[in-house]
Amino acid sequence: MQDTVKLHFDVSGNDFTCAGEASGKIKRTLKQLGFDISLVRNVAIAVYEAEINMVIHADGGVIDVDIDSDCITVVLKDRGPGIPDIELAMKEGYSTAPENVRMLGFGAGMGLPNIKKYTDEMNIDTVIGVGTTITLKVYNK
């Protein structure tokens, strides 16, 4: 019998009306599976931020979720511009979001730091001009 659940989502770029749909569905699935709410919340917040980043900064991408009874792994892959300086991008308040995006209330520069805070492992794999892959892990303790 399968003892993992896999989910896949396509996220379209620059469409704020759909932003948050994938993280919402992931949250619902984890709740249904009976995971502890604090884990569900951590995953939901982290994935939401990474999903929004894909929409704002990278013109969309794909999300793959691997749910295991002791670990949730989420891989967010985009073909965006890449992140030139990861250390700088991880700083609280740092943002390259354009004005029109800030007007919508996004671009506070807290996304990446929050992803780090709410996950147990976070890995950013980025190549300028090719894209970014962010891998998140949250353990079920």
């Binding site: 399968q2 619902r28 249904q32 599976l33 009976g34 995971f35």
Partner: peptide
């Protein structure tokens, strides 16, 4: 009264979820 939960343990719930998917 969590009616969202589909099974008593995560493993059974995952089996259920995969079947549903």
């Amino acid at each position: 009264a969590s009616v969202l939960k589909v099974a008593d343990n995560v493993t059974d719930a995952m089996k259920f979820m995969n079947q549903v998917e």
